[in-house]
Nucleic acid binder design. Structure first.
Length: 159
DNA sequence: GGAACGATCTGC
DNA sequence: CAGATCGTTCCC
């Protein structure tokens, strides 16, 4: 389900990136924000699919998800890394002068590079198929940066 | 009403 | 490898 997003084009304004790493969060996942039911924060993930669920964490970072479950089902896919395609100068202005790769190779980094914050929570996600097929055999790995259900193989990467 | 804890990143 | 830094959640 989540791996179909791999190699898709993610667009926000003049910035675009190719999705190369995602992580699936289902409602039965103890690590998911939806695990304990609907709240004001996670309402977007319980809503209809195709909307951005953006949350703030560690007092300084935003992370970007795309709601994937049907209306009423709390599911989403966390965007963990993209490769910059368009608007790279703008990304560099937001992120500081760094190599292209390090502009968007982490959940908090790509949120900052695309200029996404809580104001964009609930916005319609712009994800396009521009002809690059998802990898036939994505790399599947255990998860990072969480404390619960770490072993669940829910992280998908483009080789 | 308060305390604990992050789906992280950066610089030391 | 520890600190930054604050919204959300849960417990009293």
């Amino acid at each position: 389900m989540a791996q179909v997003l791999l190699n898709k084009r993610f667009v926000v304004g003049e910035c675009a990136g190719r999705i190369v790493e995602v992580e699936a969060y289902t409602s039965d996942d103890p690590a998911s924000h939806c695990y304990r039911g609907r709240t004001a924060r996670n309402a977007v993930m319980f809503g209809p699919p195709g909307h951005l669920y953006i949350y703030f964490t560690y007092g300084m970072h935003h992370c970007v998800n795309i709601a994937t479950g049907a209306d009423g089902d709390g599911q989403g896919v966390l965007l963990r890394a993209v490769v910059p395609l368009d608007g790279i100068e703008l990304m560099r202005a937001r992120r500081g002068d760094r190599p292209d790769k390090s502009l968007t190779d982490g959940p908090g980094k790509l949120a900052q590079a695309f200029g996404l914050d809580l104001a964009d929570n609930g916005a319609v996600a712009e994800v396009y198929d521009d002809g690059v097929a998802p990898p036939a055999m994505p790399l599947i790995g255990h998860r990072i940066g969480i404390t619960r259900a770490v072993d669940w193989p829910r992280r998908y990467r483009v080789p």
